[in-house]
Write a protein that binds this DNA or RNA. Sequence first.
DNA 1: GACCTTGTCGCCCTCTGCTGGGAAGAG
DNA 2: ACTCTTCCCAGCAGAGGGCGACAAGGTC
Length: 621
Amino acid sequence: MAATEVSGPSAQFTKIKKPDVPLAQVPEQGMQEETVRRSGSPQGASELQAEGSCRPLQAKHLEGELSLVPAPSEKHILTLQTVHLASEDVEMPELGWLSAQPAEEVQVVVQADSGLPSLLWLREEPQQSAQQCLAISVQEELFPLQGVEVMQFHLLEENVSATGEERQLAASGAQSTGLTKLEKGEEEEQLVVENRSTESTEEQFFLVEARPGDEGKDEIVLTISNLNVEEQQDKPASGQADVEKASSIKNQRKTKAAKRTFRTFRCSACVFTSSRVSSFNRHMKTHTSEKPHMCHLCLKAFRTVTLLRNHVNTHTGTRPYKCGDCDMAFVTSGELVRHRRYRHTHEKPFSCSLCKYASVEASKLKRHIRSHTGERPFQCRLCSYASKDSYKLKRHMRTHSGEKPYECHVCHARFTQSGTMKIHVLQKQRENVPKYQCPHCATIISGVAVSATLSGVHLRNLHTYKATEMRCRYCSAGFHERYALIQHQKTHRNEKRFKCQHCSYACKQERHMTVHVRTHTGEKPFECLSCDKRFRQKQLLNVHFRKYHDSDFIPTVHKCPKCGKGFSRWVSGGLLTAASGHGGQVLLVTQGGCPGSAGGPDSTRAPTAAQSPLRPFQACL
DNA sequence: GACCTTGTCGCCCTCTGCTGGGAAGAG
DNA sequence: ACTCTTCCCAGCAGAGGGCGACAAGGTC
Ligand SMILES: [Zn+2]
Ligand SMILES: [Zn+2]
Ligand SMILES: [Zn+2]
Ligand SMILES: [Zn+2]
């Protein structure tokens, strides 16, 4: 490949568009190139808005370069950096793509139209070469290589513009030097990036070349090449503009990536890539069903010896990984780590972005997120219920099956949930615990916590001698023991302490006396709103209203078992109060029946008040 | 290949809170 | 006798903690 030329009316940055080649068609490795074009139609800077949660990047111009400075905490997904490939006799400057320090880099923002990551980083290099290209590094984990390879990189001319010098170069069709150079102050855009957090992973590299498009057209052609299969030497020779030469560029950055030689092996069946052939080979076995290692105890087969050994340990109970802080032990180190996070370190690496929840395991966060989204993937096949996790659905299914797996050991009652049974058992224990009988009184202390403490409290509170005499609330009696006082006061309870001033009537409660006094004063404070009749008691008014003004009122009929006549009420002493058929009279009857018969009581409901044979029985009220 | 780490799925558990029916007691 | 209120309790769902088991990749 020849030296890359960059041309065009302005500087250029890239807009990622949708992959337009199916992943399966993506060239596997090497120097295959994807050439994409973009016409020169301008795009408004306002389009530089990524969807989703966003954080603005402010464009700045620093000493002739425009850079977009991210917030320090930003993590980004793609990195786009310029690499200035020198001519054959010019030693290449350092390669920015290995720097892996985004905060130091100059960035270029691209927009994702199709959910692709929305930011590329672009590193501005000094203009040391007439031949330039771009290298893109991709954090593999979040953005599979194949997906990137086929992306279209569109130039956004409005965003950036070439310096005057560059314009000249472009106009002349000569080699451009300032691919990433931005005109100071020309368009300082507030750019927005997708705020997606990720951990740093191995990077993938592409070579992007820019050169003028068809003659006379406002067009730039970007050529994207894969660099992954090339080796990068620690001490490369001078570079050329083709990939092979780029691959041997001296890398002066002291980074991890720069210090090692790497080669990428890529699975043809999935997105997996690895720099190690051993990992690659092992990975390829995952695409087969080959499981040569079989458990002699249960005949289950495994892919690796390690998996088999762990499995056999579950049979034998062998748990080599013991927790240093408790007695727990585990089959695998991972289980131990997780246990320690749950029980000892409380480290919770997975945090909810919507609330303060954090979890030890990703699956727990996933489950938690459903409480925000309301998603209920587990649908009951018998009713409309759907749950957010499988366990709740399983638990719910017991309501259909009637299964009650939990049994009370005290009364053998069964329950669908353990918690329900637990509460029940606690209740039973309260009933069955040993009781404490106070030696000084009839008090019996029972409950779950019968103890010396509790009985001691009883003795101290009730049976200790008090120097100060305690007076009864109702009379002049005095006591030095609280228990004696309380017992005495109880004797006042059944006393008819309220005595009528006008007659001999006495009662226990003041409210009863209030009502009674009205029989002397004639006061009837409760007035019927429908007939102006007045009552001394509210209850009497209520009864009146129902009987005479409520059409829904259904009186109870007590039938005389002997003669079948209806009575409004049964009096336990053997009196039936006559209802209809007895002319509204009060009739004294024997237990066996009314005077015209003999027998016991019976009661039925009359169909309606209107149809009832009963007549309101005023005399008995 | 061994060891380790990371990730995933599934299972079971606890704690918690709401609800409705029924018994008991008060009014 | 009736009504109303309160309490109890079983039923049930929401949310989260913890572990078992396994798969797969990185590294030595
Ligand atoms: Zn087995
Ligand atoms: Zn422990
Ligand atoms: Zn949350
Ligand atoms: Zn259901």
